[in-house]
Design a protein around this nucleic acid. Structure first.
Length: 506
DNA sequence: GGACGGTGAAACTTCAGGTTGCCTC
DNA sequence: GAAGTTTCACCGTCC
């Protein structure tokens, strides 16, 4: 039997709870399943709660519900928020004994346990293969052990495979000093976003106020070398100018030459620059969106816009293309080639894999608005319910930003198609269902049901009789829809409402 | 003899996470 | 680099 499983069982025998940290999602899920095979709990009500977390239960939900029935859960970013909350709450209540998690659980919320078991202190890290995780992260995880309100002590256990590894872990982590916290301001996307917003709000007006402001930040304190720091800021500034978000002007009114930055030059945000900053957009993304919008015309389609928002830093991490999918993605790319708003980079370009991943991500969005369910999306694109929500939210935000940018850039013709796309993404529907979604209580499933029964728009809904509509939607909702249409309907007895209302839209 | 099913080893594939904006009937 | 997953050959059983 696996050491982790043994420790988990031991924890249960002691009537305690444990959190097990695993280095990958697959590993967390497997550990949970292995433990669930052995425990003897039977928590049927919790199991139901998990399955309700999504529209149609996916393979993942079924795996989770099966574990949860046995008092064990896995926890990672692929779960929906509802499911994560349910797991966390049930753990606090003591119903769930063991959680197998990825580092999601280490940061943020407080979820203490008697025992923390760290399966492995190594994790895959890009080019170097497996690498030790930061000491800081180890401390975050180990710090989950011990519940101050109930226990006087907690245990944080790490599993070593050899004696040599045991030594190394002890030295590196138990005796280790956590890494220094470095200022996130040093990251370029953050820096350029801040710089633009400071200029837009008038806090930075010229070279002097720029140096004053940044000189007082934690970043400068850590960085030390102010000259080098000023060079970085100047480079950012000129990028903002080049992108058309900031103007540099001499006091006399002349525009400054592009490279020199004199003490007197006035920095001001352009109208678009101001809007970009209000939207909290990374200026690089804003430039990308604006460049794409210019190329958008009637010959383009929803895929064009979906790929536009997929090909941004904000959408990262993108859906990765698996080896087996390469051909399929290439074929789809060829089909949509004319619709792209950006050029395909050369295959040797470092951006190439991101670009291809953005195609896959856009295809996923397209499948979603093609009314495919979550189980299909999991099979076809390997996206889990939790990620679907996050991606949809990001897409909506970026499309909203695009709509606003189009407004400022006087490209109002684009606003309508973007807005329609946002509505479609929200519920995951084809264009034809949009008229029906205006009604409260009608989502993708019911709208499709109405549509396929010939009720395709407001006119049809007005014309149809209550009996037919009730058959499709249930009495209460049918009456509600009729009322939303401005018709008065005889009230249905209140007792029946509950069942209908609990059928959530999604 | 052939279909089927179980088993184990080898080959292959993949690998954590979460914040932002705005509106509204 | 390592764990998890898939593939495939092999063997035994049953009809």
């Amino acid at each position: 039997m696996d050491e982790t499983v043994k420790l988990a069982l031991d924890t249960i025998h002691k009537e305690k709870q444990a959190i097990i940290f695993a280095p990958s999602r697959a590993s967390a899920e497997k550990a949970a399943e292995d433990i669930a095979k052995i425990t003897s709990f039977s928590l049927l009500d919790l199991e139901k709660g998990v399955l309700k977390g999504v529209g149609t239960p996916t393979k993942q939900c079924r795996r989770l519900s099966h574990c949860i029935r046995k008092g064990v859960a896995f926890h990672h970013a692929g779960l929906t928020n509802k499911q994560k909350e349910l797991i966390e709450d049930s753990f606090r209540e003591g119903k769930i004994r063991i959680i197998c998690a990825t580092p999601t659980l280490a940061a943020g919320l407080s979820l203490p346990a008697y025992r923390v078991i760290i399966k492995s202190l190594k994790r895959y890290s890009g080019r170097w293969g497996m690498d030790w995780i930061p000491v800081l992260e180890y401390m975050q995880m180990a710090g989950r052990a011990g519940r101050p309100e109930y226990e006087s002590l907690g245990e944080a256990l790490t599993i070593a495979k050899t004696d040599a590894e045991k030594e190394e872990i002890h030295e590196r982590y138990v005796c280790g000093v956590p890494e220094e916290i470095y200022s996130k301001l040093a990251v370029e996307p953050v820096l350029r976003t801040y710089l633009l917003s400071l200029i837009a709000s008038g806090i930075i007006r010229d070279n002097k106020s720029m140096q004053d402001f940044f000189g007082k930040t934690f970043w400068a304190f850590q960085f030390g070398d102010m000259n080098k720091l000023n060079l970085i800021m100047e480079r950012m500034l000129h990028l903002l100018e080049e992108w058309g978000f900031v103007t540099l002007q001499n006091p006399g009114g002349d525009f400054a030459p592009a490279n020199a930055l004199s003490a007197e030059q006035q920095m001001r945000a352009t109208a678009i620059g101001k809007r970009v900053s209000e939207l909290y957009l990374d200026p690089l993304t804003a430039r990308h969106l604006l460049d794409c919008l210019i190329k958008y015309d009637d010959s383009k389609n929803t895929f064009s816009l979906l790929q536009m928002v997929s090909n941004t830093l904000e959408m990262r991490p993108l859906l990765r293309i698996k080896a087996k999918e390469e051909d399929f993605i290439h074929q789809e790319l060829m089909k949509q080639y004319e619709n792209l708003l950006t050029k395909e980079p050369s295959a040797f370009d470092i951006d190439y894999s991101d670009f291809m991943n953005s195609i896959k991500t856009a295809l996923f969005f397209e499948a979603w608005i093609g009314e495919n369910d979550e189980d299909y999306l999991l099979e076809k694109f390997n996206v889990r319910p939790g990620e679907i929500r996050v991606k949809l939210e990001t897409a909506d935000w970026l499309l909203y930003a695009s709509e606003e940018l189009a407004k400022v850039a006087s490209q109002k013709n684009i606003m309508a198609p973007i807005h329609r796309l946002r509505l479609r993404l929200k519920d995951g529907v084809k264009e034809e269902l949009l008229p029906l979604l205006k009604f409260k209580g009608i989502g993708r499933v019911r709208a499709r049901k109405l549509y396929s029964n010939g009720l395709k728009d407001i006119g049809h809904l007005k014309a149809v009789d209550m009996a037919t509509l009730s058959q499709l939607l249930g009495k209460v909702l049918a009456a509600d829809v009729k009322e939303q249409l401005g018709e008065t309907v005889q009230q249905v007895p209140a007792g029946k409402r509950k069942g209908q209302l609990s059928l959530e839209k999604f």
